Amino acid sequence: MKNIVYVSTAVKLMHENQLLDILHNSRLHNAALNISGVLLYSDGTFIQVLEGKDTVIDALYSRIKADQRHKNIITIIDEPIVEKSFGQWLMGFAITDSKKTEKLLGYLTSISELDLNNDNSPAVAAIKTFIETNKLDINY
């Protein structure tokens, strides 16, 4: 099992419907392949954690890197893991400026929902740094 954490820049700022489409498709795909993780978006920047079986995560990440909706993809972490940090999330999801998405299953209204305080993994550290740097408007 492994995780990959990456950051990328949207080719253009994403509208709510585009983000919801990404979320919906990710959840369907992730459920079928036992992938968990979290996706955060702020002002054109994404950070995503993907966790699952090595070959499955590598194949998914290859698809993600080929996606034309973003650029400047930087791999922060690519390492084996013993257990998932985001195992309860097919895809936890947060954006900074949309009230409509709050009713979606998996939408993060509070970072405490991710239970980051009890996990010292590099993936969790990357997510915490993104949250703090972007001053995401969700309780931490």
Results as ranks from 00 to 15, higher is better:
Val7Phe: 09
Asp67Ile: 12
Lys65Ala: 11
Ile73Gln: 02
Ile77Gln: 06
His15Phe: 11
Lys12His: 14
Leu50Ala: 06
Ile77Pro: 00
Ile81Asn: 04
Tyr140Pro: 05
Leu40Ser: 08
Met91Ala: 04
Asp115Leu: 02
Gly87Asp: 06
Ala32Asp: 14
Thr9Gly: 08
Lys53Tyr: 08
Ile131Leu: 04
Thr101Leu: 10
Ile131Pro: 01
Tyr41Leu: 10
Val124Thr: 00
Lys53Ile: 00
Leu19Ser: 01
Glu113His: 03
Lys2Ser: 12
Lys128Trp: 08
Leu116Gln: 02
Val5Ile: 06
Asn3Tyr: 05
Thr96Tyr: 10
Tyr61Asp: 05
Asp21Glu: 15
Ile74Lys: 10
Lys65Ile: 10
Ile47Asp: 09
Ile131Ser: 01
Lys53Pro: 12
Ile64Glu: 08
Asn139Gln: 06
Thr75His: 02
Tyr61Thr: 01
Thr96Cys: 11
Tyr107Pro: 01
Asp43Ile: 04
Leu90Tyr: 15
Gly44His: 03
Lys100Val: 10
Glu102Thr: 12
Glu113Asp: 09
Ile77Leu: 05
Pro80Asn: 09
Asp78Arg: 00
Lys103Ser: 15
Ser112Leu: 09
Ile111Met: 08
Met91Leu: 06
Thr75Glu: 07
Asp115Ser: 09
Val11Leu: 05
Asp67Asn: 13
Thr9Ala: 14
Ala94Thr: 12
Met1Arg: 04
Gly87Cys: 05
Ser42Leu: 09
Leu136Thr: 01
Gln48Glu: 10
Gly37Ile: 02
Ala66Cys: 10
Ile4Pro: 04
Ile4Arg: 01
Ala32Val: 07
Ala123Arg: 01
Gln68Thr: 09
Glu16Cys: 06
Val49Leu: 04
Leu20Pro: 09
Ser85Leu: 04
Ile131Arg: 01
Gln68Arg: 13
Asn17Gly: 10
Ser42Pro: 03
Gly87Ala: 01
Ile22Met: 14
Ile74His: 13
Ala31Tyr: 13
Gln18Val: 05
Leu108Val: 07
Leu40Val: 09
Leu104Ile: 15
Asn30Ser: 04
Asn25Pro: 08
Thr45Ile: 14
Asn3Trp: 07
Asn34Lys: 09
Asp119Gly: 03
Glu16Gly: 05
Leu19Glu: 03
Glu83His: 15
Ile77His: 06
Leu23Tyr: 10
Ala59Ile: 00
Leu104Ser: 10
Asp137Thr: 03
Thr96Trp: 11
Ala66Glu: 14
Tyr6Met: 11
Gly92Gln: 02
Ala126Leu: 09
Gly44Thr: 00
Met1Gln: 07
Asp115Ile: 02
Thr45His: 04
Leu23Asn: 09
Ser85Tyr: 00
Ile81Gly: 00
Leu116Arg: 02
Gly52Tyr: 00
Arg69Ile: 12
Asp54Val: 07
Val11Pro: 00
Ile57Phe: 11
Lys103His: 15
Thr101Lys: 00
Gly87Pro: 04
Asn25Asp: 14
Thr45Asn: 08
Ile4Ser: 03
Glu83Lys: 15
Lys53Val: 01
Gln88Glu: 15
Arg63Thr: 13
Thr55Met: 08
Ile64Tyr: 07
Gln68Phe: 12
Thr96Met: 12
Leu13Asp: 11
Ala59Phe: 00
Arg27Lys: 15
Thr101Val: 12
Gly87Thr: 05
Tyr41Lys: 03
Ile127Arg: 00
